[in-house]
Computed example of a mutant assay.
Amino acid sequence: MKQPAEVILRGGIDASSVVWLPDMPPGSFRADPFALWRGGHLHVFAEAFDYRDRVGHIDLLIFDRDLNLLECRTVLKTPWHLSYPFVFEADGEIWMLPEAFQSGALTLYRARRFPFEWEPVCEVPLDGPAIDATPFFYGEKWWLFYAPSHSKLAKKSHLHVAWSDSLTGPWKLHPLNPVRIDLSSTRPGGTPFARNGVINLPVQDCRATYGAAICILEIDCLDETQFSATVGEMLVAPPWMAPFTEGLHTLATAGSVTLIDVKRMDVSLHGKLGRVDGIIRQRLKRANVFRR
């Protein structure tokens, strides 16, 4: 969208500012968009998922200044599922911290040749594989907000925090983890920003469904021993976006451009058969790996 996040949070989504990504083939989708401007081009990184193999990878879409699509290709693919490609600049480098909890680890990547080539730099050891890990530099420290993966409920309702003096660690766990337990406002969902001295963390409202809406968690106290926050503005998919009104679970900023993802559920026979086929393929793949 050709609107900064703060404008959207105050007044909602303006239909005239929306630029839709190209459609995906049946049985697949893109989600979790994050972006950086570089060389006059907007580089959008997003999860690409196909129900036939059920293993997400990271796609790159490059746009010009007028948001015309110039190129689309896959830039990061692993044997395990990848999503939430949080891309950011720090220490003169460009980094990506994608979710890969099925690998059993959280791995920090660095651009070897931006935006197409990425190399793993280090693992970030926490209290288990992290979900939607979101880094933010604030108060001369790196803070990492994430959801734990130890249970299905915790993935959507617990917020954990870690901190470090360096992006590559060592990372220390916050002693109050989980610092917040609330199905409506904990799982990270986008790019944090500071406003009036307060950290604003986009988080997902998962009460009605996973990623039903985004709200802003206003963190007014954060240090190595304390944490407090209140819920601020909420953003939902407006009715004019129908049929994509069944969820909105990312709010990522890139200067004057804001990225969101909205969803619809395909309840057609074709959609259901595609999901069943994907589950069968995934289980057969795991069985073959086990037999080896």
Rank of each mutant, 00 (worst) to 15 (best):
R54Y: 01
L61Y: 07
D91I: 06
P85F: 04
L82W: 01
Y51C: 01
R54G: 04
L60F: 12
W80K: 02
H57F: 10
I62T: 07
A100C: 05
L67V: 09
Q102F: 11
G92K: 09
F86Q: 09
T74P: 05
L97E: 03
S83H: 03
S103D: 13
W95E: 06
G56M: 02
L70H: 11
W95K: 08
R52K: 13
I62V: 06
T78P: 04
D66E: 15
F101M: 11
T74E: 05
L97D: 01
V75T: 05
I62L: 08
A100S: 12
L61P: 07
A90V: 08
N68H: 14
V75Q: 06
V75M: 03
V87M: 06
D64I: 03
A100L: 10
L67S: 14
A100E: 08
D91A: 14
G56H: 01
P79C: 08
Y84F: 15
H57K: 05
M96A: 12
C72D: 01
L97G: 03
P79D: 09
H57I: 02
V87K: 07
D59S: 03
V75Y: 07
L76N: 07
D53G: 13
S83P: 00
Q102K: 14
D66I: 04
P85C: 01
V55G: 04
D64K: 03
E89D: 15
Y51M: 00
I94C: 05
I62W: 00
H81N: 15
L61K: 06
T78H: 10
R65N: 01
A100I: 00
G56R: 04
P79E: 15
D53R: 14
F86A: 11
L76Y: 08
E89I: 05
N68Y: 10
I58N: 12
V87Y: 11
R52S: 15
L67C: 13
P85H: 05
D64L: 06
F86M: 13
V75L: 00
V55T: 13
E99K: 08
P98K: 04
A100K: 14
G56D: 05
R54H: 04
Y51N: 12
D64T: 02
R65K: 06
F101R: 10
G92C: 08
V55H: 10
N68C: 10
H81Q: 13
R65T: 04
R73I: 02
E99M: 04
H57N: 00
Y84T: 14
C72A: 08
W80L: 10
W80H: 10
I58F: 15
D66F: 08
E99A: 04
S83K: 09
W95R: 12
